[in-house]
Amino acid sequence: MTLLAGEMATVTRAEVEDFLYHEAELLDEWRLDEWLELYTDDARYVIPATDDPAGNPGQDLVLIDDDRLRMMARVERLNSRKAHREYPHSNVCHQVTNVRLGVADGGELPVRANFTVWRFRGGRETSYVGKYYYTLVRNEVGLRIRSKRVVLDLTALRPASDVAIIL
């Protein structure tokens, strides 16, 4: 993929919001193969532990630390009928708000947003609340995600049990 450096400074918040809403829609509709296409080949998807939000996945225990290969494996798993926790799939609703753009640097644009992800399955309701920290880049097709770090505001994951869905 060719990254178009130097063009991130002109990206508008409306453009970023449209992009994040698109990602949310793909996740809500379980179109996970299309969701993967939003990510660069060197992408990372990380969820730190609830008691260590600044955790470094190279040293500390986190909840999820996926590179592209593991994101693909996660999608393949969730698409199968053998990811028992998510078969049948939950109804999920990703709500993205408070989108703020940081200062573009070297072709990368840092973006933070607040989120609530609702998950409904088998009569049970759970929710995840927290902050998204993205690093966005642009290629010839459009915006792409190089990094997504999901910091939960939950003090423990207990009410939600697990993070078998993609946040």
Binding site: G58, L63, D65, R85, E86, D162, A164
Partner: peptide, 27 residues
């Protein structure tokens, strides 16, 4: 550090609430 990274990779792919196995145990 590189051994630690491998250990973490090995842990997370199977274990824990975001792993490829523990959620199915919970289920």
């Amino acid at each position: 550090p590189e051994v630690r990274q491998r250990r973490l990779d090995s842990f997370l792919t199977f274990l824990g609430p975001g792993g490829f196995a523990t959620p199915d145990d919970i289920e």
